[in-house]
Design a binder for these strands. Sequence first.
DNA 1: CGCGACGTTGATTTGCCTCAACGATTGTGG
DNA 2: CCACAATCGTTGAGGCAAATCAACGTCGCG
Lengths: 196, 196
Amino acid sequence: MHMFSTIDDAVATCIALSAEERLLFHSLLKHRRVRKRTWLLQEGEICNFEAFIVKGCIRVFYCDEDGAETNLSFAIEGSWVSDLQSFSAQTPSLMFIETLEDSELLLLDYRAKTELLDRIPRFERFFRLLLQQSLITLQTRWHASVAHTAEQRYTSFLDRYPTLAPRLTQTQIARFIGVSPEFLSKMRRGMYRRMN
Amino acid sequence: MHMFSTIDDAVATCIALSAEERLLFHSLLKHRRVRKRTWLLQEGEICNFEAFIVKGCIRVFYCDEDGAETNLSFAIEGSWVSDLQSFSAQTPSLMFIETLEDSELLLLDYRAKTELLDRIPRFERFFRLLLQQSLITLQTRWHASVAHTAEQRYTSFLDRYPTLAPRLTQTQIARFIGVSPEFLSKMRRGMYRRMN
DNA sequence: CGCGACGTTGATTTGCCTCAACGATTGTGG
DNA sequence: CCACAATCGTTGAGGCAAATCAACGTCGCG
């Protein structure tokens, strides 16, 4: 079980690679271990990576002028994390990316991604399918955030991400579903009471 | 100025096509004119198109059990519209797509898209970049919907879409920015008063 | 002409936030 | 290993943004 097995599986579900192609792909990735609570990206910086998570847990969030944070997404082993806007246009980022656990990453920087797409154009398809899935997920999430109540958003979050939820604090979940931590606490109390 | 010029321009900003490739591309598209207030897709149907809008205005929306509608997106000439989830997985849709004006479309159905990607793999890149842009837009929109007030969302909608906004009714805009039509009206009055 | 969407306005309600305070747990440096 | 700080979850009081409900005028369209 070496560090590329997870990412190779992920790629293999979309496109087939020869042995040499796989080696080239691996050579373009940088392996990195980071401690929990490390900033991978801060507002104002240019995001120079798309990171595949081999192990760990990461959050992406915005921070408004008065310091309030809203979580855009969580990512765990098997998924990718980046600020697409900043990465693709090489412009300053509006968000932060932070590890929530000790993590192990495979990083693809801008030059490496360009070279990868150039040398193995089939990766265009891989990234297209990845983006398509992300877009579908975000559409669903947007709809939930405007059409559902806070309690519906919370219970469907627990339903949809049963393995992720236990790894997060209540505060992080609250910032993701769009309520204050205090209100989430009150909701939980209410839901518990109702079950007895 | 024939019906393919807009779509050819859109494609040309991402990938270069030979004359034969362009002809093949055109042959896979179906041209269709539809009257205003036509349903292109209803909840429960399988979406079998990605539509490029040559002329017109279209909205995509969800409809909950009690009949309340929330607009996911608007699309006008030069952009694409589809239910990606339903189209890509060929599963029943959760949304509706409706023309708001008489429109002229170029439709790519599932088989045609598959064939297009098969015969001209460079289109993988085109669709990847299209998806990337949509994802970035939706991320920004999601952030606005949770972090900004209704008035901020309204004014930035007017700012961002100066050509689109005048073509929509207040009710449609309200359903897009996530407020009730009544409240939008009150906001507008308040904003007007403040200017005097 | 008359019907149905649309925009407006007011009265009332409510979902969720803010602020403040407090234990419990976790982490950290001496 | 202990003391202290920091973070986290909880609870209560009070407030506000926005929803809901109801009523009414206007306009475009069949």
